[in-house]
Structure formats: structure tokens, C-alpha cells
């Protein structure tokens, strides 16, 4: 963006405005799920777009701009967490959790959006993150693996377990409030 003439700057801005800016609500949504706090999510969104603007010459037009922006967002978030000393090795509880979810519960019907969100909130972060990135944001396994800097096999197992935990949470919720389940 810097060190180029006005005409090129205007051209680059027009491309950025057309490709990147419409994705701001999506980037904010991912940021909000990632950091939970609105103000922090706004800061992260702002940093992401400032960085994207600076690096826009590296982006190949008409490729997956959303994935590119979310990659920047994850990278910046890691840096922030590192600075704040929050970057800790996450204890691998996957196997432990997998053992506690040994069955495929039926999916209850007639649940509201709010109940689904509550169930999603209750599953551990590393599973929820993968469910949100794949099922909501529709990133591919490969993209999620790159974002989380984790092997693709781990993404697949976390997704599988995340979905199963979500079903379990929904079934428990339904049982508690007497909502009928099919299956």
C-alpha cells in the first residue's frame, strides 16, 4: 500500500473495498467466538483489517479472501495472547472426553436457537472452535488445520467429537425440559 502512486493506491483501495470490506461482519463473528469479549473482538477485527490493507498486494484476487482474513486474525490473536502471556499448552483432554461420550444420542427436535447456542457454549473450547469454523463458517478441513496450526487428522477428530458432544448436550437439555427426541 505504501510507496506507490496515487492512482495505484486508489486502484488497490477499490479492490480491497470490493473483496475484503464486505467480509467485516464475518471476521468480527469469528473474532467474537474466539475472544468472547466485544471490545476485544472489535480491536482484533480492526487490527486484522489494518494488517490486511498493508499486505493486500500479497493477496491473489478472486481467491478465498475470507480464509485469508481469518488467517490474519488467528495470527494476530496468537501474537496478542503471547504478549499477554496467555499462550499455554492446552492439556490434551480429547481422549478423556471421547471416552465419556461413547454413544450417538438422537437429535432432539423443537429446540430454539438460544438453546442450541447454550449447548455450543458448554462444549470445550478446542471442539467448539472446530465446530464453528467448519459447520458455521464453512472452512475446509485443510483451512481449519492451517488456521489452528494443527494436523488435519486432529481437526477431523475434534470435529467428530465436537459434534457428538453437542448432540449430547442437546439431548440432555431436551431430557431436562421434556422435549421429544427422534431416533
Amino acid at each position: 500500500m505504501f510507496g506507490i502512486g496515487r492512482e495505484e493506491r486508489e486502484k488497490e483501495w477499490a479492490a480491497f473495498e470490493a473483496e475484503a470490506l464486505p467480509l467485516m461482519p464475518d471476521v468480527f463473528r469469528v473474532a467474537k467466538w474466539l475472544v468472547r469479549d466485544v471490545s476485544e473482538a472489535e480491536d482484533l477485527t480492526q487490527e486484522t483489517f489494518a494488517q490486511a490493507l498493508k499486505s493486500f498486494h500479497r493477496y491473489t484476487p478472486d481467491t478465498n479472501c475470507r480464509a485469508w482474513l481469518v488467517t490474519i486474525l488467528y495470527h494476530l490473536n496468537s501474537k496478542r495472547r503471547y504478549k499477554l502471556g496467555q499462550l499455554k499448552l492446552v492439556e490434551d483432554v480429547e481422549e478423556q472426553i471421547a471416552q465419556t461420550v461413547a454413544f450417538e444420542p438422537p437429535i432432539p427436535q423443537h429446540l430454539t436457537d438460544e438453546e442450541i447456542l447454550q449447548a455450543l457454549e458448554r462444549i470445550p473450547k478446542q471442539f467448539r472452535e472446530v465446530v464453528v469454523l467448519t459447520d458455521v463458517e464453512e472452512f475446509s478441513y485443510k483451512e481449519v488445520a492451517e488456521l489452528l496450526q494443527t494436523p488435519i487428522g486432529t481437526v477431523m477428530s475434534r470435529l467428530h467429537r465436537g459434534r457428538r458432544l453437542l448432540r449430547q448436550q442437546l439431548t440432555e437439555y431436551a431430557r431436562k425440559f421434556g422435549i421429544a427426541a427422534e431416533g
Partner: peptide, 28 residues
């Protein structure tokens, strides 16, 4: 549907607009 509709994950339009204005100014 639930996640995309959740009010708490929607961007504040005024924030988005301000950010857009700042980016435009930086870019040009």
C-alpha cells in the same frame, strides 16, 4: 442459523463504518 443470527456476534454498524473510514484514509 443459530450462530449467524445470534445478536451478540453481529458487528456494530457504527464501529464498522468508522473502521472503514479509517482504512480508506490510510489507504489513500
Amino acid at each position: 442459523v443459530a450462530v449467524k443470527n445470534a445478536p451478540e456476534v453481529q458487528i456494530n454498524p457504527a464501529f464498522a463504518m468508522r473502521l472503514q473510514a479509517n482504512l480508506r484514509e490510510t489507504a489513500l
